[in-house]
Design a protein around this nucleic acid. Structure first.
Lengths: 152, 152
DNA sequence: CATAATAGAATTAATATTGTCTTTTTCAAA
DNA sequence: TTTGAAAAAGACAATATTAATTCTATTATG
């Protein structure tokens, strides 16, 4: 039961964006460098985050990525589900029909329950909490950001 | 965040043993057949379960496997940790030193917390609960078992 | 002797990760 | 206004790593 790198990196990327501040955009390049993640790999992770409406991309020179919502409105669960597709531990939790023993499977009950527990726990934590929880200790590294116009 | 097959199969194997009853042994072959799992693969999963003292093996003709403890004393967490090595979602939770950003990493905090949440949830569920929860519905398939002498 | 456990290796399948190259978009300097 | 550099976006392909599964042979026990 390991967390995928997509989830781990996705969360770190979002934390970096949240730490940059409201309506501040960052280059993927800079995030990748500061987080020690391959820029290429991050550029794949960013796609589903954008599709889920969690971030916005700004093309062209001096472009970058910005949070599309307030950090308090983005939960860890949002990020993980966007990046991972679904959170469930085993496929039969979401798709009961893929396994013929679903109706008589006591182990499926555990995994369903545990999946819910995990999802609830992740839903309780927002980006805002993550960033502010650390802000006092001054431990979050803020990257040089650019203010983004709000016009669509 | 998918559960490994080792954990899934391990739990199903243990449920089968628990359902067989107290001090009843089962052939791996029969469990594998009834659970639709490769016997070879199950025979690998069984090793760490034995090493963790959760099951006992009986060699020779008419041998098999038995639970080494009462079902109420075996939690899902015991099984998963035996089979998986450790339960933590990311390595840095258990080994903080493998990553230099551990002291300044807000995301590590989430995963540590979530790992604990998961571990607690799994610890709360015992084999006894799993089997008895279903027993009423008569949905657990019991395999033909052999009574095992308690002598070491 | 039959049966099952044990061990270790080999194979296959699935994910994760990186690489290359091309296109589109935008800003800003010329 | 034009042009060039910078950055996102997209399309594949290639490689690496890990997990899952199977194979072969050996050992122990009733």
């Amino acid at each position: 039961m390991k967390l995928s790198t997509r989830s781990r990196y996705g969360v770190r990327l979002m934390i970096a964006l949240a730490a940059a501040g409201n309506d501040k955009s960052l280059f993927l390049k800079d995030i990748a460098a500061s987080e020690d993640i391959s820029e290429k790999y991050l550029s794949l992770i960013v796609i589903p985050l954008r599709a889920a409406g969690l971030i916005r991309s700004i093309r062209g020179a001096r472009g970058g990525y910005v949070l599309a919502k307030a950090p308090k409105d983005i939960s860890v669960c949002d990020i993980v589900e966007a990046v991972e597709g679904d959170t469930c531990l085993v496929n039969c939790v979401k798709n009961p029909d893929i396994c013929k023993r679903t109706p008589v499977c006591p182990s499926r009950d555990i995994w369903t329950q545990l999946t819910n527990t995990i999802r609830e726990a992740m839903s309780r934590t927002t980006l805002a909490q993550l960033v502010s929880g650390r802000e006092d200790g001054n431990t979050i590294i803020r990257l040089k950001a650019k203010t983004v116009s709000k016009a669509e």
